[in-house]
Nucleic acid binder design. Structure first.
Lengths: 154, 154
DNA sequence: TCACCTCTCTACTGGTTCGGTAGGCAATAC
DNA sequence: GTATTGCCTACCGAACCAGTAGAGAGGTGA
């Protein structure tokens, strides 16, 4: 259950675009975003292109060009961004959780994967880019982070 | 956010061992487990060896040998099995969620990853191998699967 | 003691993915 | 027309993944 560099970079870049959107400054240049978040520039261009193809981002070329969000930051969830660059949020050996076949004592595993995906969604589909910019997460998510136990790795 | 073949196989094999434990039949041979779950035998031996090294499984060699759970099935969670074969449940670009540094508008991402990990844990640390065998998941997890929306992929 | 069975361990391999780079092309502004 | 910026495809090395191989060690039974 790894979060790839690609997904992480995409979210960081998107958060920069969200801030620019909220603050009303114009298009952000790739150079600026990459520098602000410490992302290799060419790699990030690649990633932002994916976001553009999925309709999350708009662009303009030329001297006064750059990138900006296609819709308000509050309408883009983190799940939207991740799906744009990585495909489905959760899958089992390359298949959708509901597509995997289990036999005998393992039968309930399918439902477990469904539950896993659902729990991922409750976080990633409720947090929006606007939440990142504002610095306040939705109550459900905030609640998960309150438990000190959540901050230790096992 | 992929579930690897290794983790999937580990859980399936473990569920077979759990059933044998609950039913009180003796050690299970690798051959039997592999056949029952359709797992390549040598690959599965490899995986079960990991489970053994982590103290989840005991073994005996020879004609009347086989594999069995080291502790009752109700005391082994799915998270235990996954961690034994894959390491940490969730990490961001190879690091623990709480170790990743974010700057500016991306700062809240760390808390998001913490929440993601916490939500994974609420599923994988509550379901035990005994639950799989009995065919009844804990209420919290069962609840997640009840929502029809959880069964569609986006 | 011998034969046979089953797990143990290390190494290997072929293929895919991942993170990142390169470079030419297309559009925009001045 | 020229400088600037994004667009797009291709490429590359390294790591990882799924699976295989095979010799060896510990058991059992005769």
């Amino acid at each position: 259950m790894q979060v790839s560099a690609r997904a992480d970079y995409a979210l960081r870049a998107a958060s920069e675009l969200a801030r620019a959107k909220v603050e009303g400054t114009g298009p952000l240049k790739g150079e600026r975003i990459a520098a602000a978040q410490g992302i290799p520039k060419k790699f990030m261009e690649n990633i932002l292109l994916d976001l553009k193809h999925h309709g999350l981002v708009r662009t303009q070329r030329g001297a006064s060009g750059g990138y900006w969000l296609a819709v308000p930051a509050a309408e883009i969830t983190l799940a939207d961004v991740i799906r744009a660059v990585e495909g489905p949020l959760a899958n089992v050996r390359g298949e959708w959780p509901e597509a995997v076949e289990y036999t005998g004592s393992a039968e309930k595993l399918r439902e477990v994967w469904i539950a896993v995906r659902a729990s991922l969604r409750t976080v990633l589909e409720t947090v929006t880019l606007a939440d990142l910019v504002e610095g306040s997460l939705p109550p459900v998510v905030e609640g998960l982070t309150r438990n000190p136990e959540a901050w230790v790795h096992h």
